[in-house]
């Protein structure tokens, strides 16, 4: 008989916590608490990614989601009210319809998903398997994620860097360059 994999209980616990935090964020009217819970949500998903062996993704999620974006949301929150306006009841029904339709479509698609950890699933076979075999000979870098990111998919990463630069440029052009002048205008 196959032994029971106890680590999957950790996955379920983390997913349950994600769900609880998500519901709490939606129900909260206090923006400060909502921003803090979004940081908690990111940290929980980072822990979950570690449990799924996606350490690089977990690292990024913890640094960007739980760290920087919480600070940026707090900075944005200081410019607006501390409490969210209550949403009208009519909008609840429209949102519920959209959520139910999307959820039903996702549940319908579950049947076509490969089993968790299936070695023959498209994500593990073909290209992913190829990278694992060829990286030691062609790039000779122990971390295959880095090899794929910077070497095999170097063009993609170049594009991502340009996207980040464009995002920063957009913020600078829209909100001013953050010099002394902008501070005086914003400070009032």
């Amino acid at each position: 008989m196959e032994s029971f994999d106890w680590t999957q209980l950790l996955d379920y616990a983390l997913m349950a916590m994600l769900l609880a935090v998500g519901v709490a964020i939606v129900r909260l009217r206090n923006l400060f608490a909502a921003v803090m819970l979004m940081g908690v949500y990111s940290l929980l998903s980072a822990a979950w990614f570690v449990s799924l062996d996606a350490v690089d993704v977990a690292f990024t999620e913890a640094a960007v989601g739980a760290g920087i974006s919480t600070v940026l949301m707090l900075g944005a929150m200081l410019l607006t009210a501390r409490e969210a306006e209550p949403v009208k009841a009519g909008r609840h029904w429209a949102a519920l319809a959209v959520v139910l339709a999307t959820g039903a479509a996702l549940f319908f698609a579950i049947g076509d998903m490969p089993a968790y950890g299936d070695p023959n699933s498209p994500a593990n076979a073909y290209v992913g398997f190829d990278y694992l075999i060829r990286t030691p000979q062609e790039v000779a870098v122990p971390n295959v994620v880095t090899a794929v990111l910077a070497s095999y998919r170097g063009f993609d990463t170049f594009g991502e860097t340009v996207v980040i630069f464009a995002a920063g440029l957009g913020v600078m052009l829209l909100l001013g360059f953050g010099g002394k002048k902008a501070k005086k205008e914003g400070g009032e």
């Binding site: 600070v71 940026l72 001013g176 360059f177 953050g178 902008a182």
Partner: peptide, 8 residues
């Protein structure tokens, strides 16, 4: 840069 522009 984003933090500076928001914070200022």
């Amino acid at each position: 840069v984003i933090f500076y522009t928001f914070a200022s």
